[in-house]
């Protein structure tokens, strides 16, 4: 029996992507705990496997073996649907991320658009999960998550629009191809617009806020809302929220490194490939973790003020200045 090459290709990519997402998320959980440990002058997990590397695997088995309890009075359908709505888009966006020159599931010339389209489904999952839980903490958290996501999507997209104006393409692979060495990175102001570093900063902050990472983790603010939207989730329901968060963190950092740091290209023009992509992305992931374990949490109004009063005006300024520069030169 012969399989059509396209079908084999699709199956290969589905299996590969899901495997990567799951392994990567469990690796990030382990990394987070190690980083947190070392920041806090302890060593973190160490028992399961060398350096505790299998710790999150063990945690995953534990979560999977637990019952998914649907609390009394909860909306069963929404409650079960919500984790999927968080996890599925998180997997889908990996389809267009170019890990290497040829290592991309589907090199769509609208890659950026696809990512943001899928990423905005995430918030729906949080909202449904919070609403369906029949828990006041979860409802408060869900409303927080929505207002936060709405507020931060705007400056994020404005920044991306600005960048696309410079690159003239929405294909992620082509954007990477435009940055062969370190001096061509869109991080630097001489590559199109003097506002580019600010754009990177806005994008990075927004991607932290979009993925509900500390110091913007208002959705699950454990000292205020116990665990926020996933208060009532047990077992793998919680596990999917958790995996979704980590894979979103990875996607955010991967996007930042593709758009501003040259993706899979080597900074010095030597041996481009997937390793450079991973190095850059994991470095940004490390920064995200570093921030999380250093800063306290902001408040909701502090967060919204930052977005509406600082980030959006700067993102608009970025857009205007860049447009003017592109027109003049």
């Amino acid at each position: 029996m012969s399989v059509h090459p396209d079908v084999a290709r699709v199956i290969g990519y589905v299996v590969g992507t899901i495997a990567f997402v799951a392994l990567n998320a469990s690796f990030l959980v382990w990394l987070e705990r190690k980083v947190a440990g070392h920041i806090q002058r302890r060593i973190g997990p160490k028992e399961v496997g060398p350096f505790g590397i299998f710790q999150s695997l063990a945690d995953g088995i534990k979560l999977m073996s637990k019952q998914l309890i649907v609390p009394e009075g909860a909306d069963g359908l929404l409650f079960r649907l919500a984790p999927l709505l968080v996890m599925i888009p998180a997997v889908m966006v990996y389809v267009v991320i170019p890990f290497g020159p040829a290592l991309v599931a589907r090199d769509i010339n609208m890659g950026i658009l696809v990512i943001f389209a899928f990423a905005s489904i995430n918030v729906l999952g949080l909202l449904l999960g919070g609403w369906g839980s029949n828990n006041k903490y979860a409802v408060i958290s869900a409303t927080r998550a929505v207002s936060q996501n709405v507020a931060y999507e705007i400056p994020m997209l404005l920044t991306v629009v600005t960048l696309v104006m410079i690159t003239h393409t929405m294909s992620l692979n082509q954007i990477v191809a435009q940055q062969p060495t370190i001096k061509d990175w869109y991080l630097f102001p001489w590559n199109g617009s003097i506002m580019l570093p600010i754009g990177f900063l806005i994008f990075f902050i927004c991607s932290m806020a979009e993925t509900n990472r500390a110091p913007f983790d208002l959705g699950e603010a454990e000292s205020e809302l116990v665990a926020g939207f996933h208060t009532e989730y047990a077992g793998m329901g919680f596990g999917l929220f958790f995996l979704g968060e980590y894979s979103n963190v990875f996607v955010g950092c991967a996007l930042a490194s593709i758009m501003f740091l040259g993706g899979w290209q080597c900074p010095f023009g030597l041996y481009p490939g997937v390793h450079w992509m991973l190095i850059k992305t994991y470095f940004l992931v490390f920064v995200v973790m570093w921030v999380r374990w250093t800063y306290p949490r902001t408040t909701l109004y502090g967060l919204l003020n930052l977005s509406w009063k600082v980030l959006i005006p700067f993102a608009l300024l970025n857009l205007l200045v860049t447009a003017a520069l592109l027109k003049v030169f």
Partner: peptide, 16 residues
């Protein structure tokens, strides 16, 4: 207190 405010690390420093 800092834990209440969402910062985890100072707790362990203080415990040290």
């Amino acid at each position: 207190y800092v834990l209440d405010l969402g910062g985890f690390t100072p707790l362990l420093y203080a415990f040290d």
